[in-house]
C-alpha cells in the first residue's frame, strides 16, 4: 500500500438525499460533503441511518430523491472505493485466498498478487494465519482480514461500518491502529460507530445522525467540547437518545 495522492473520488457530495423504503423514510434530505483529510466519523444511535448513508456513499444504494456526486460526477463505479460491513462475510477459503480474491476482483495484475497479499496480511497482523480458513478466525481476526480485503482494492476512500462492534478492547485497539495507519496514508476513512470513545480517538470531524437526519456536523474537537444541539448534548451526556 502506497501513499495516495488526493483522489478524483473526493469530495463526495450529498445534495438533498432522501431514501424511503415504502412508507418509512430512512434518510431525510441529507446534504453533506465528505472532504479529504482525517477520518469522518458518523455517530448516532442504532437506526439513525448511519449504515444506509455509508452504503450510499459507497454507491451500493441509489437515493429516492436528491443526488450524490463523487469528485463532481454522478454514477462513478466503486472501483476506488471499498467498504467493510458490520458483519463482513468471510469467503470459504483461507485468509490469504480471501485477499487474493479481492485483488482479482479489483483486476490487479496477477504478478502483483503474492507481494500485495503478504503486505496486506502483515499490515493487519495476520501473516501467521495466512493459510487458516477465514471462517475459523476469531471475530477480531475476521474484522482485520475484512480490512485487508477492502484495502486490496487500493481504495481512495474506505467506508467502515461499526468496525469494532462486539470486539474486546485488545482486538478493538488492533483494528483502530490499522485505521490510523490507513488514514495516515491519505486514504479517506469514513466510519460509522455508536461508540463515543472510539469517535473521540479517531475522528477528524463528526457527522451526527438522528432519525435519518443530520443533527450536527463539525470538527471533532469542537463537537465534543461545545455541542450545539439538544440531541448532541443528550447523546454526549451518555443519556438515551430516542
Amino acid at each position: 500500500m502506497t501513499m495516495r495522492a488526493p483522489s478524483e473520488e473526493l469530495p463526495i457530495v450529498f445534495e438533498g438525499v432522501t431514501v424511503a423504503a415504502g412508507p418509512v423514510t430512512i434518510l431525510d434530505s441529507i446534504s453533506l460533503t465528505l472532504l479529504p483529510g482525517p477520518p469522518t466519523v458518523l455517530i448516532g444511535p442504532n437506526g439513525s441511518g448511519k449504515s444506509t448513508l455509508l452504503r450510499m456513499a459507497m454507491g451500493l444504494l441509489a437515493p429516492s430523491r436528491g443526488r450524490i456526486t463523487w469528485g463532481g460526477r454522478e454514477n462513478v463505479p466503486p472501483l476506488k472505493r471499498a467498504i467493510v460491513f458490520q458483519r463482513p462475510a468471510m469467503l470459504r477459503r483461507s485468509a490469504a485466498a480471501n485477499i487474493r480474491f479481492a485483488l482479482r476482483a479489483a483486476s490487479i495484475a496477477h504478478a502483483e498478487h503474492a507481494r500485495r497479499t503478504s503486505e496486506l496480511l502483515e499490515l493487519v497482523g495476520l501473516e501467521r494465519l495466512a493459510d487458516r480458513a477465514a471462517r475459523r478466525l476469531s471475530g477480531g481476526e475476521q474484522q482485520r482480514l475484512a480490512l485487508a480485503r477492502a484495502l486490496a482494492r487500493d481504495p481512495a476512500v474506505l467506508f467502515l461500518d461499526e468496525p469494532t462492534a462486539s470486539l474486546d478492547p485488545t482486538a478493538t485497539k488492533a483494528v483502530e491502529d490499522i485505521i490510523r495507519t490507513v488514514s495516515e496514508r491519505n486514504i479517506k476513512v469514513v466510519m460509522a460507530t455508536h461508540d463515543l470513545g472510539e469517535a473521540r480517538r479517531l475522528a477528524g470531524d463528526i457527522v451526527m445522525l438522528h432519525r435519518g437526519r443530520i443533527v450536527e456536523t463539525g470538527a471533532a474537537a469542537s463537537f465534543f467540547d461545545r455541542p450545539q444541539t439538544a440531541e448532541a448534548k443528550t447523546f454526549l451526556a451518555g443519556e438515551l437518545l430516542v
Binding site: 460491513f85 469467503l91 470459504r92 479489483a106
Partner: peptide
Amino acid sequence: IEYRDELTAMNLGPLGRVATLIWDARF
C-alpha cells in the same frame, strides 16, 4: 444472502458471482 453485500461491493459481474458462489458452496 450471506455474500450479496461483499460481492456487490467488490463490483463483481454476474459470471464472477456465480463462479464464486458455486466454488464457495462446493462442500
